[in-house]
Design a protein around this nucleic acid. Sequence first.
DNA 1: AATCATTTCCAAACCGCTTTGGGTAGCCCA
DNA 2: TGGGCTACCCAAAGCGGTTTGGAAATGATT
Lengths: 343, 343
Amino acid sequence: MNLKELATRLGLSTTTVSRALNGYPEVNEETRERVMAAAKRHNYRPNARAIRLATGRAMAIGHVITVSSKHEIVNPVFADFIAGAGETYSRRGYDMLLSVVNDADEPRAYRELKSRGTVDGIIVHAPRANDPRIHLLHEIGLPFVVHGRATGAADPYSWLDVNNRRSFRRAAEFLIDLGHRRIALVNGLEFMDFAIRRRAGYEEAMTARGLPLDPALMFSDEMTETYGYSAACRALDQADPPTAFLVSSLIIAIGVRRALEERGLKLGRDVSLITHDDELSYLRNGEDIPIFTATRSSVREAGRQAAEMLIDRIQTPGLPPQQRMLEAELMVGLSTGPAPTRG
Amino acid sequence: MNLKELATRLGLSTTTVSRALNGYPEVNEETRERVMAAAKRHNYRPNARAIRLATGRAMAIGHVITVSSKHEIVNPVFADFIAGAGETYSRRGYDMLLSVVNDADEPRAYRELKSRGTVDGIIVHAPRANDPRIHLLHEIGLPFVVHGRATGAADPYSWLDVNNRRSFRRAAEFLIDLGHRRIALVNGLEFMDFAIRRRAGYEEAMTARGLPLDPALMFSDEMTETYGYSAACRALDQADPPTAFLVSSLIIAIGVRRALEERGLKLGRDVSLITHDDELSYLRNGEDIPIFTATRSSVREAGRQAAEMLIDRIQTPGLPPQQRMLEAELMVGLSTGPAPTRG
DNA sequence: AATCATTTCCAAACCGCTTTGGGTAGCCCA
DNA sequence: TGGGCTACCCAAAGCGGTTTGGAAATGATT
């Protein structure tokens, strides 16, 4: 059943039927009701392809997810962000388009998305420092919102981010207040913007309290369980091991825990740990009381909001760049305690 | 730059230009080269919306991901499956469309996808026993491939699955061979097809060796870390605790490990554990030697292949239903050892 | 030289909507 | 009674491609 059939069946022109269905004012209320009823009765759904061509809008948002040929990691945060964004899209009538591209092809992918007109806008994931995508997207004129920020980007742009610096500073201060002096940082890859900011927060707290920054206690890599494990091993097997860990993800924390247990060290007593918790749905940090003390911020909610921001930008062009900062909560759990007194 | 502009610039009709670009034979080779060169020079990209309307094909595959209002879990396996499927899609010129819908709306979502013509086919995720989606998709006539199977489905359908029953039977036998008699099963939700089959494999092995099936050792729930932990606690705190665990995911295994360590039990010595490992990119089971002994099968590869199967079905209609069974490898790691002799 | 098949190209229809630019009927008012 | 409004509806022209059904030119055949 298409528009033309529906129109003939009603004895009306397609114009009128189209207008009736789309709520335009130049159609009699009575007629509109007739049309609506017939549409429902015949289960009429306008053809999305035709609408897209006629209106020139794609009614779709692109998410480009890159897999590098070296480390083929799919960001574990991705699924939940997508789920959140997807909720917004369905509510506002947009489709979500996912492109999996090799990172070398990313610029080309964006250009094609624009020139072929498959999407109206883009969410930029996992920004790095001086991320070239921001300039690129400005250049090709595709609306976008960045999930995170990109230190050093020249042009202004829209973003939604967690206050990584503040939350890691706060977490480090919390550990320092508990008496910890040697605090290890097990961070993500430090060309990623979030990792840069978290490190800055950690360093700020340390230096503000007059504590030294020991490179032997600072780690940076892809955030896997085995990385958490091996970083913790290296840290703990030093002459002067840390009494606390500040880590960038729950998965890292789990790896650290494995290293601790291997050494008979008890979390929260012998060694303290604070992690960032993105509230991934399949990796909850305990039920009521958190297993790990954590800086918590829902990435799913971030997805919802970022999508909302992007659609707003698409629907009202010329909107000035918009920013939104989410604050992470510090949830005290079982993994932190006073620094052990030297025996 | 659109087709018409390109055509006038070349002094040709749009027909000829279109044919030249799409490799039709009725155009002079010389002309074709001229057209190709001009297209490249002007960076011409055909408008995807127009192609879709003209050809009647969406050139897109739908993935419907459901979030239930009760347990809002995004399947952690999802991201990697998508990444694999996405590779296939880019290679074969398809877009990937993601719909996040509440599970109550799922049938409606499929119907709309069909009647609005947004996709050419669908990948069905996380099938349950007697999954109604299979009949529904047959009814509305949308090509699909199921990732997994659906015990009890009446109509024949295409699927790609891991041999869950066999791999869990084999894993259980391995534990029995090591002398274990009380083996706990920590499974996923047992209305999910994969969980049903894994349980069947486990039960087969146990009864084949004359071992009793103890309901107190069989657990079933959403596969989270805390579930693994609490199931293990309940199992271990029994009068006659198990000496081995057979669990359905690495995340569960991590929870079990936490419970063990809390009790001072050493994995691989006091208690053995085998898990299924989907080879999620952010949750590798160790580098060289697996941390956990595991039945291993790459879900990313499954994504690649399922996508390939679906596109084949779309491009050659009338193809009989096709099935592909992947065998999981049993990787012996550090988490299994001979059953401890009773002190 | 006439006939016929091939090769190469084109005009126009079509995909299924939206939107522009009227047209007509009914009503009000002078 | 006629002019001007308003309310309601429609035909037709897009949107940017693909595809159908020729037509013209060329070459081969008789």
